[in-house]
Nucleic acid binder design. Sequence first.
DNA 1: CAACATTTGCAATAATGTTGCAAATGTAGG
DNA 2: CCTACATTTGCAACATTATTGCAAATGTTG
Lengths: 142, 142
Amino acid sequence: MKDTTVDILKRNSLSVTDSRRSILDLFLQQNASALRHSDIEHHLGAMDRVTIYRTLQAFCEKGIIHSIPGSDGAARYALCKGGCEHGHHHDDHVHFVCTQCGSTQCLDDVHVPFVRMPDGFEANKSEMVVSGTCKGCRKRMN
Amino acid sequence: MKDTTVDILKRNSLSVTDSRRSILDLFLQQNASALRHSDIEHHLGAMDRVTIYRTLQAFCEKGIIHSIPGSDGAARYALCKGGCEHGHHHDDHVHFVCTQCGSTQCLDDVHVPFVRMPDGFEANKSEMVVSGTCKGCRKRMN
DNA sequence: CAACATTTGCAATAATGTTGCAAATGTAGG
DNA sequence: CCTACATTTGCAACATTATTGCAAATGTTG
């Protein structure tokens, strides 16, 4: 049985509203590719900016989406795959930023390798972002 | 022979101005620890915000400092060590963000491990940020 | 020291993010 | 289906981060 947006919202004890359905729909349409706040704003022009911020925050807290670090000063978010939806995240995968098209993608099958910390440091979470040319752009270049 | 701020600026063909010397001094005083724009602003209250942005950009282009990715929407910068200062960066080290004190540090001796990309993706650069409790904060907790 | 190039500070503007509050919408019980 | 209650939305205001153009100030070179 396929998860509908309503299922996902209910399962995470979020009330089902038009805004949340639209935003979740948008994420489901992406293919492992991340969205910035402004992307969502452009797609759903009618929706208030603040609502988008609050929805993204709620989805993050519930583990429906995860945030992706980036140096460009704009937060990005992507759907969590698999067992992320019960409070504990499994988003230990590598993220890829394409310098050609600017897209950010989840490499769900590539997990962040372990690195040993220097004495005294205690690691909790590791994030890894690889940049380069993505599959789509390399095809386009041939 | 020890590098003075003036040496570093001249070597990178940057004209020697008070602003650049002050900012570079600040970085040299840090110990592998990163600064945000706002940190610099607070330390050097008299300096215009725009000058700080432009100086950070110039230092980045020359490879004197490097930027560090972070999810909190504020760029961070730290001095480049070693052979970074001739246009090509060697900042392939892991960065550590302490969730206690909020500081960001360069782990100069821990380099970012190689990961194999899925077919079609071409990697250029890898960044890794580990978060947890830093040395200083763990000492303070005992 | 003079002529020229570069940098600085200011003003204006844009993008991103947060908060409080009243109106609108969603949920649950009868 | 309707009412009462809880939650969410939209708006306004505001804070922070960042960018650009331009004239005045500063640095560099001969």
